[in-house]
């Protein structure tokens, strides 16, 4: 599948994907409602921190942290694993394979195309969040904001690649959604989605540092809330993009092996 052809088709893929996202705006809203977990955690941790702060985190810090988490999750989420699971199960993947565009790139395009709708849906919440946190809750360093944008792109790619790798599990297991569950378990605790990884007990911190999850949510949130300095941020970014490369590699590998199986058994 030539890249040139895909590159030329990409704008149309994005446009049609966007039209689809608009058709599914109700679904998008459900997605936003389904990802309100940070707000629940916000309520919880605020109660905990009412009397005394937990580590560096007092009530205002928790509020800033979880509202940022909410926004980051909206902007980096991807349904690719879901779509792929459906396609493998229903045999629709066959039709995708017969197109002269690499199916993985098509999934990526669909995920990217949903982004404007996600921004539109989560923008009001972001505005409210900023109002609540106040300008003091987020970083004022323009360099950190630039790095934030880079980390957001990295987080999106990482989430997409992992999602696709998990989607490839559909080639091997009857229900790859279980594998997704498994991944989500780790994701929730170790990404900083349920609590800032900083306040995890020492032993778990070491685990977090060895895993990619923090780079999916934690890093952009920490950059946004000014929890990291410039130097530290650059180091973390380098590690994030290393994970992006690793996840891309494993996705490609899983895809190749899964496809071989698909071609042996058919959809």
């Amino acid at each position: 599948m030539s890249l040139r052809n895909t590159a030329r088709a990409f704008p149309t893929l994005l446009r049609v994907g966007f039209a689809e996202a608009v058709a599914y705006r109700a679904e998008m809203l459900v997605w936003v409602l389904a990802t309100t977990m940070p707000l629940v955690m916000l309520a919880l941790w605020s109660t905990v921190a009412r009397d005394a702060p937990v580590g560096r985190y007092g009530q205002p810090q928790f509020v800033a942290y979880f509202l940022s988490t909410f926004i980051v999750r909206q902007l980096t989420g991807s349904w690719a694993f879901w779509e792929m699971n459906q396609d493998v199960k229903s045999g629709a993947l066959g039709m995708r394979l017969l197109r002269p565009v690499h199916p993985l790139l098509a999934y990526a395009a669909e995920s990217l195309a949903a982004m404007p709708m996600r921004v539109v849906v989560s923008l009001p919440l972001a505005a409210v969040a900023l109002g609540v946190i106040g300008a003091g809750g987020v970083t004022h360093d323009p360099v950190l904001w630039v790095l934030w944008a880079v980390s957001l792109a990295g987080a999106w790619l990482l989430t997409l690649f992992i999602g696709l790798a998990v989607g490839c599990a559909a080639f091997f297991f009857e229900s790859s959604l279980k594998v997704m569950d498994l991944w989500l378990v780790f994701f929730f605790v170790f990404s900083g989605y349920l609590l800032p990884v900083e306040i995890l007990p020492g032993g778990l911190r070491a685990v977090v540092d060895a895993l990619p999850f923090r780079f999916q949510i934690g890093l952009p949130v920490e950059l946004m809330t000014g929890a990291l300095g410039r130097g530290e941020a650059l180091g973390m970014l380098a590690r994030q993009w290393a994970w992006v490369a690793v996840s891309l590699g494993s996705t490609a590998l899983m895809w190749r092996r899964g496809l071989r199986r698909f071609e042996a058994y058919g959809g």
Partner: peptide, 11 residues
């Protein structure tokens, strides 16, 4: 939309 998509995909 599908026609348009296929136009792009098949170049």
């Amino acid at each position: 939309e599908t026609f348009e998509l296929n136009r792009a995909v098949y170049d």
